[in-house]
Amino acid sequence: MKSFTVSKAVTALMLAGLVLLPLYSQASGNIFILTLFTRIIILALAAASLNLIMGFGGMMSFGHAAYLGIGGYAVGMLAQEGVGSGWIQFPVALAASAIYALVIGALSLRTRGVYFIMITLAFAQMAYYVASGLARYGGDDGLTVYKRSDFSGLINLSNRTQFYYLCLACLLGVIFLIWRIVNSRFGLVVQGLRSNEQRMQAIGFPAKRYQLVCFVISGTMCGLAGALLANNTDFVSPAVMYWTRSGDLMVMVILGGMGTLFGPVMGAVVFLLLEEFLSQITEYWALIMGPLLLLIVLFGRGGIMGMLGRANRG
């Protein structure tokens, strides 16, 4: 941190708040807020992973929720089959997401622009229907996870506070990884491809290879979020993969600020708190949320991080 800026200060405040939240929850006896924020953190993790391809890589995936489902179903299906160990469930969740991303990415990256948006959407819908067709695992109705992942007593996922800190650690770990990646050789190539693919080809980079690897990294990270989400809700259903869920993730990324490290976290916090808050004051919260999104697009360029950046200069 070289210099003080408004966005850094706000980010630091937000992180401090997230770290201290369980203490507040315990002191005030407000359990609800801990549950709410566990969900927020998991979805922030998903948004951060989407931001890696969308914000840094320029790949507008409209099917990112598929990984939430894949990660979740890996946990749920293994649990149902009697494999309760997190040491198996989580690696399987990540591997399944990575393989799915590899196949989908290899096909989707043949297209660009709107076609890319649509084909990623189509594949996610396919995943959605596959899940709906799994009669053994609940089909449309989804699958209850009766027992949370077991990490041989190292950490107890059924303990709210422990689970919260596990999710927070995963989020921070992923953001740390993204930070390293973005500044690495690989990261510069991927960002260069976003900026000008023709130029990058001309100086000797095979574009697709780098984009595909980035796509797989991002999908794997989101698979982690999926595995956590299934543990959080004790349930997984095709609905987590529905296209509006992918839309939510995109909204979080854009709202917070694409291509910034902490923007997606900020976006997830604001989006989900707003949803929570609005639904408490009016049953018809989306009546406000909808136009708000429109206004943000029209006037809030660069998302929250962009606005904070301007506040700094102005």
Partner: peptide, 27 residues
Amino acid sequence: HLYGRDHLDHVLATFGLILFFNEAVRL
């Protein structure tokens, strides 16, 4: 006001409109 903007802006803004219309109909 969205013409000439990024496709991503379109997706986000019209996604907002879907929320709005669904809720307006419910109301």
